[in-house]
Design a protein around this nucleic acid. Structure first.
Length: 570
RNA sequence: CGGGGUGUAGCGCAGCCUGGUUAGCGCGCGUGCCUUGGGAGCACGAGGUCGCCAGUUCGAAUCUGGCCACCCCGACCA
């Protein structure tokens, strides 16, 4: 392809409404353009990258025995009512009516459709296992789309669904997908990590997320510095600390803490550390109000509480509810004498001998409160988020934090959908049995964005070669010259014949413009043809990643390009 | 939805507070000359419902009200 013909509207300046790096660079590099909030058009370069990811995904899915299908995007409400998600999914499901007033939605995911498809035609254990996947546009009416392709409303996703006759089969299917995902993201040239994850509203018994490690990631990855334990912060387990047997030995005392509401204010005012305080959080849930007790320096993990209570909704109580339950204002809540509310306490509370708590009265706290005897707790559990330096739940190591972008998520669904939608088969004994399902997603468009988040510099994108829209950019420099043009044309043809997607910058531009554009759009290898080197039968080769320029003989140029790409990470 | 912010040429912005006649600047775009190793230079030129609607006023990009769109922070997720 020739640059003079390719539609690559690069921008010199950053678009004002793009904040994150991948969004900025994709706009500047002429890869995407926004149509409306969270909805993007792919220009030639962007679409080429997207298709590179798709192709890798497709090859590895096929190799793992999954079969590609293509499911409808418009889906009838009846299916969603059957699974129970028409009401549960909320406003993220874009709903509308057709001309006959029939209710429909745009598919945000395809469990309903695939389950319906399979239950119609699969009747026997002989037809199982089955794994079907598709690469398709999804629509989720996100509350707040942002960050360009990182969280669009319309996005490209690969979703696979496995159906098995037995529990063992379902677990094997899960592991096969796990391996396939490892290969996919490795082939994409990304630094990533598979982490344990909460299974969220899709449900199911266990799941892993595939995180591309990048500072701009929205998720926090917790990992052990000595074993291979890794989990999403929302899931990361905390090793319970050993309970103390000691009490304060004295009665609690009430002290005045005028206008001291926050942990910092109270601890500073009383001259104690935040870890000597207990914070009492009142939560409103669909299972009734709950008080959660945490050590002052710990943070609530609402997902853990939500899972513990099997609640579907949970939020911090407002001033009014707090007052109703504790009798005191916000900022002075404490567990002593609290009643009419479930009291949950984090394990760490048991390790405290003496604590400062709110007195449930404006401007007062209690000191010298003994958690062992000072108040009643309905249940102890793991309710806080991990902190860097916490002990690993699996070994003696310590936990460290990093940021990640979730590009893949695999779930073992079990019979959640086969049960609600009655997807059954006859087992060898002729008995009607529920299929056991798994589902496996990859954010294909997000993967392109994540690759850019992870690989860029001040000059632009540094594409890992497998995802680059083109592998090589041939740049001619200097005044127009027949010799240079001929050499460029010759190498251009050879590179294509050798299987390299090659761009030839034949524009009548000054070299600076060509170099800037090549850097911006992140082409891995730049091959520059200039008068001086050409006279000696040589061309220049430059790695976008290492930024070193080497001179090679024209005859060896193709091999040198190949070597540079093959040793990309070296 | 709650909080914060922005809407003026394809992009980035100034002008608005303190209303005034042809609405500016840089980049980009077109034509010509010139130039060709890191976003050159000169000349000429095209391009604007000042987000939309209503109001105030002799007069509105500018003041007032309503609406819309987009961005950022929170709850959601590939």
């Amino acid at each position: 392809m020739r640059m003079s013909k390719l539609h690559v509207p690069t921008l010199k300046e950053d678009p004002a409404d793009a904040e994150v790096i991948s969004h900025r660079l994709m706009l500047r590099a002429g890869m995407i353009r926004k149509l409306t909030a969270g909805v993007y058009s792919y220009l030639p370069l962007g679409y080429r990258s997207l298709r590179k990811v798709e192709q890798i995904v497709r090859e590895e899915m096929d190799a793992s025995g999954a079969q590609e299908v293509f499911l409808p995007m418009v889906q009838p409400a009846e299916l969603w009512r059957e699974s129970g998600r028409w009401d549960y999914y909320g406003t993220e499901l874009l709903r509308f009516k057709d001309r006959h007033e029939r209710e429909c939605c745009l598919g945000p995911t395809h469990e309903e459709v695939i389950t319906d498809l399979v239950r119609r035609d699969v009747r026997s254990y002989r037809d199982l296992p089955l794994n079907l996947y598709q690469i398709q546009t999804k629509f989720r009416d996100e509350i707040r789309p942002r960050f360009g392709l990182m969280r669009g409303r319309e996005f490209v996703m690969k979703d696979a669904y496995s159906f098995d006759a037995t529990e063992e089969g379902a677990e094997a299917a899960y592991l096969i997908m796990r391996d396939a995902y490892e290969r996919i993201f490795k082939r994409c040239g990304l630094q990533f990590r598979a982490v344990e994850a909460d299974s969220g509203p899709i449900g199911g018994s266990f799941s892993h997320e595939f995180m591309v490690l990048a500072n701009t990631g929205e998720d926090i990855v917790v990992s052990c510095d000595s074993c291979d334990y890794a989990a999403n912060l929302e899931k990361a387990e905390i090793k319970p600390c050993s309970p103390t047997e000691k009490t304060t030995g004295s009665e609690p005392r009430k002290v005045a803490t005028p206008s001291m509401k926050t942990i910092e204010e109270v601890s500073q005012f009383l001259g104690v550390t935040p870890s000597q305080l207990i914070k009492t959080l009142i939560l409103r849930t669909d299972k009734g109000p709950v008080a959660v007790l945490l050590r002052g320096d710990h943070e609530l993990n609402d997902i853990k509480v939500k899972n513990y209570l099997a609640a579907s909704e949970i939020e911090l109580a407002d001033e009014r509810l707090i007052n109703e339950i504790t009798g005191g204002p916000m900022g002075f809540s404490g567990p002593v004498g609290l009643s009419g509310v479930t009291i949950l306490a984090d394990h760490a509370i048991r390790g405290m001998e003496s604590a400062v708590v709110g007195a449930n009265e404006k401007d007062f706290h209690l000191i010298d409160v003994s958690p062992l005897t000072g108040f009643k707790v309905d249940a102890y559990g793991d309710f806080r988020s991990a902190l860097a330096g916490d002990p690993c739940p699996r070994c003696q190591g310590k936990l460290v934090m990093s940021r990640g972008i979730e590009v893949g998520h695999i779930f073992k669904l079990g019979t959640k959908y086969s049960e609600s939608m009655n997807a059954t088969f006859l087992d060898p004994d002729g008995k009607e049995t529920l299929m056991i399902m798994g589902c496996y997603g990859i954010g294909v468009s997000r993967t392109v964005a994540a690759a850019i988040e992870q690989n860029h510099d001040d000059d632009g994108i540094i594409f890992p070669p497998p995802l680059a829209p083109f592998s090589v950019m041939i740049t001619t420099v200097g005044a127009k010259s027949d010799e240079i043009d001929a050499a460029a044309q010759s190498i251009y043809e050879k590179l294509w014949q050798s299987g390299f997607d090659t761009l030839l910058d034949d524009r009548n531009e000054r070299p600076g413009v060509k170099f800037k554009d090549a850097d911006l759009i992140g082409i891995p290898v730049r091959l520059t043809i200039g008068k001086k080197a050409l006279a000696e039968g040589k061309v220049e080769l430059r790695s976008r990643r290492k930024k070193e320029t080497v001179l090679v003989e024209i005859e060896k140029a193709v091999d040198a390009v190949r070597e540079m790409i093959e040793n990309w990470d070296a």
